[in-house]
């Protein structure tokens, strides 16, 4: 495996970048061809590196109207990124310096096209950049909002080698934005059995979720949170989570 040096942004430089953006300065740099770093700004990381350069598909045909295409694209990018960084540990994947390096260098062009910063008002540009290019402060919420970290983490949390298609649950996760907000950002979704149980249940019951899927998934998540308040769902299997949801079928059917 060819080891390519992986860099991260230094804490000092990262802090200065964020301070400027909070003070509504520096957003013009995000329209340049490259983001300029000094020699002292980048450090060699201890993280294992990918064995080939990551080349995610650029959203060439991405428009707001093509919702279905958008979902597929994110899922495909997540798969590429996860496989390229398959040796990344959760501890390293929680390092803002690493993700900020990727958003400002490797995926610079992707980020500019993906985020359409030009359409954001001048007043809000700083906050917008902080949300999409950084992880500040570190939390499941900011991970879900960073446009590169989200891809890797979504694949990491849903990938299952035991499945015929190991990314089946990943594809389902990207099919709806609500999953990010309710599962990835929530306490219950931190547990693999719960996360996989919920996603599998939706996949296994296509007729149940054919209509009003968003409302029904939100309902399922509310019930999971409620049940999780008196039942240690992290102690039961994925199958048992699905069985729990199966008992709620009638209620789910009647969700408007």
């Amino acid at each position: 495996m060819e080891q390519i040096k992986q860099y991260i942004i230094s804490s000092t430089r990262l802090r200065k970048m964020k301070d400027e953006l909070r003070n509504k300065k520096g957003s013009d740099l995000y329209f340049k061809k490259t983001y300029i770093f000094g020699d002292a700004d980048l450090l060699s990381s201890e993280t294992k590196t990918p064995n080939k350069p990551v080349a995610p598909a650029l959203p060439g045909t991405l428009t707001k109207l093509k919702l279905r295409g958008y979902a597929d694209l994110e899922y495909k990018n997540a798969k590429i990124l996860f496989e390229a960084y398959q040796n990344l540990t959760p501890e390293d994947a929680s390092d803002e310096r690493f993700w900020a390096y990727l958003t400002h260098t490797t995926f610079w062009d992707y980020m500019k096209k993906r985020t359409n910063l030009g359409s954001v008002s001048e007043e809000k540009k700083g906050d917008y950049i902080l949300t999409h290019w950084f992880l500040d402060p570190l939390s499941p919420k900011t991970i879900a909002r960073n446009d590169i970290a989200r891809l890797w983490w979504s694949a990491y949390l849903t990938h299952d080698e035991k499945l015929k298609d190991p990314y089946m649950l990943t594809r389902q996760l990207f099919s709806m934005q609500d999953y990010s907000r309710t599962l990835i950002e929530g306490v219950q979704g931190r547990n693999r059995n719960v996360l996989h149980g919920v996603l599998s249940f939706v996949i296994d019951n296509p007729e149940l979720f054919k209509q009003r899927k968003e409302a029904k998934v939100r309902f399922v998540m509310r019930k999971i949170n409620q049940i999780g308040g008196y039942r240690l769902l992290s102690s039961v299997s994925k199958k048992e989570v699905k069985n729990t949801l199966k008992k709620l079928e009638k209620e789910i059917t009647s969700v408007k």
Partner: peptide, 24 residues
Amino acid sequence: KYTIYRESFTSFDKKMEILIPAAK
């Protein structure tokens, strides 16, 4: 929450010892 990790461990013994990889 910083590594989006959650796991439960059960035992019938009133003394429990658990090892978790620090990278998680």
